[in-house]
Amino acid sequence: MNRRRFLKYASGLLFASLPGFNLFYGCDGKQQTAEAFIGKVAGYDENIAAVISAGFRELNVTENEIRGKRVLLKPNLVEPHRGMGHITTHPLLLRGAIEAFMGFGAHEVLVAEGPGHCRDSFRVLEESGLTDILREDRIRFMDLNYQSWFTVPNAGHATRLKSLTFPTILKEVDWIVSVPKMKTHHWAGVTLSMKNLFGVMPGMFYGWPKNVFHAAGIESAILDINATLKPHFAIVDGIVGMEGDGPIMGTPKTAGVLVMGKNLPAVDATSCRIMGINPRKVRYLADATGLGPIQEPIILQRGETIKSVHTSFSLLDKIEAHRRLMVESS
C-alpha cells in the first residue's frame, strides 16, 4: 500500500467512526475493501480489448479464473434508436470485452439482454448496431425476456417481493458481467452496473417496462436483484455516456473511460465520482452496505486516478432524483 492509499484508508477509518456513516463489513467482521480499475479510452476505435485485458491484470483477475469458463455479457440495450448510440452500450465495447475474455481463455462468451422498453429483440440488435458484431464474431445472443427460468427466494428483502425469477442461463454460466452505459437516470439518479441488471429480469414475468419493480420501488429492487443474483464483474462504458435527462432522452457526454471491477457497488461508486456525483447521495448505493463498499478510501483504485478522468455530468434541477445528487460532491 503506497502512502497516498494509506492516507486515504486511514481517513476512511476516521470517517467510519462518525455517527451515521455506513461501513461495509464482511462475515468475519472485518472492513472489506474492493478494487476498481479506471482505463482511459478516447474513442471506440481504440484497442478496447487491450484496455480491458490490462484491467484484468491490474485487478488480479487471472487466466485461471477465466480459462474454460462461460461468460455472459449483459449490455444495456433498454431502447435502442439508430443514431442515438449514447443510449446503449456500444457494440465495439462489447467486442473488446469478448476479445479480452476469449484472450484469457474463456470457453464461450455470449451476450444476453432482456430489453425493458422494446419487445422486438431483433430490432434491438439492429438499431444498436450489435447484429454485425455478433455475426462477425460468431457470438450467441439470448433474449432474456423469454428464456426458461428458475425462481429463488429474494435474498435482499429490500422490497416486499418474496422471490425473484431469473432466466436459467444465469445459473449455467460462470461469469455474469454487467456491461452498462454510464448514464444519469431520471428516477434512480444514475444507471450503472447495478441498475443495468433490471435487464436480466424476464419481461414475460415482470412486464415491459419491468413495472413490477417500479411498483415495488426501483431503488429497493436494484438491491434485491443484485443481492440475489450476485453478479461477478462489471465493465462500465463511459467512453461516451449520457448526461441530463437519462436514461433515454439525455444528451451524449464524452468521458473517455472504462470502469471495471468485481464488486459492483465499488465500480458504480467510482463511476459516480468520475461523473462528479457523490455516490452516498445515490439512494441504492448508499443502501448497498451488504453488497460492497462505496467509500472512496476503501475502494482500491487501479489504473487512472478519478481526478485525472473527472468529467462532470449535467444534472437537471427539474428532476427530483437529480436534485438529491446536487447537494454535495465528493
Binding site: 431502447e79 430490432r123 435527462d245 432522452m249
Partner: peptide, 18 residues
C-alpha cells in the same frame, strides 16, 4: 406509440413500430 409513456419531465419520448 411506444410501450406506454408519452412525455416525462417535459421530454417527448420516442415511438416504436410494433
Amino acid at each position: 406509440w411506444n410501450y406506454g409513456n408519452t412525455i416525462v419531465y417535459d421530454q417527448v419520448l420516442l415511438p416504436q413500430p410494433d
